[in-house]
Each structure stands twice: as structure tokens, then as C-alpha cells.
Amino acid sequence: MKRVAMALALAGAPLAASAAEGARVEVRGEIIDTWCYYSGVMGGPEAVVGSAHHTCALWCSAGGIPVGLLAEDGTVYMVLKLGGQGTTGNPTQMRLASHEVTADGILYERDGLKYLIVEEVVTDHGITNPNHEDFGPVPGFAIPEPQE
């Protein structure tokens, strides 16, 4: 009966909000702009990644919108730290916008989101998704029309 009571208590109790141990992980994926990806404001998920969305990813990264690491299985890891810095106006994350990277770091999970503290970019694979060939620039005004 004690065990049942403990199970009920655990099931009903909110998870502690205090800091917890993270798990070390190595993840491979693209550094993306999370707002455009999640909100669909610029189009479907295939259009807001890769070279098509590179300039917008730079704007959003400079604008302090959180970056994520979109893994090969579709999981998004919200990046909280990269190159030893937080992720607003961070020059390392700007340089890696739209790049596919293999990252080593510490994973935390809370309330349905995965959070990643990147301790090391093991490999920078560069931009591996040349999807501008399919979508053009996203948004269309990302590349200014050349003046005559």
C-alpha cells in the first residue's frame, strides 16, 4: 500500500523546477532559426532551412531569436549556449547559421522542449542543403534585386 501511495504522490506531484542534471549527448543537425521554423510565418518547414533561408537565419540570429539544432530525425534542440556564450548576438552562432554541425553538449528537457548547451562543435559540415534551387530566397526579399 505504501508503494501505491508513493506512486500516486509521484504521479500527481509537479516536477521540481530547480536545476537538474543534464545528459551528455552528441547531435548532428542544422543550426536553424526557431521562430520561422515553428511559426510557419515564412512557409513550410522545408523552405525555412538551408541556403534558401540563410539570410533570414542571419537576421533572426542577430535579432536575438533563439537558434535551434534540427536533428536528422526532426527533433529540434533549443540551443542555449554555443561557443561559451549565450545565444543572443553570438558571433559563433551567426557564423554557423544554416550550417550542419555535429555538436557535443549537455541536454536538458522540460515541458515538451529539449534544450542544448553546446560545449563543442565537433565538426562543421557547412551548408549541406542547397534548397535555394527549389525555393529561391525565403523570404523573397532576402536578396535585394540588383539595380540597373
Binding site: 539570410t55 542571419l58 547559421a97 550550417h99 542547397p130 535555394h132 532576402a142
Partner: peptide, 10 residues
């Protein structure tokens, strides 16, 4: 960054 790598980053 755009001056260095272009609008597409490539």
C-alpha cells in the same frame, strides 16, 4: 557575413 559568404551562404 553576407559580404564574405553571400546571401545564400555558399
Amino acid at each position: 557575413l553576407i559580404e564574405k559568404e553571400g546571401y545564400l551562404g555558399l
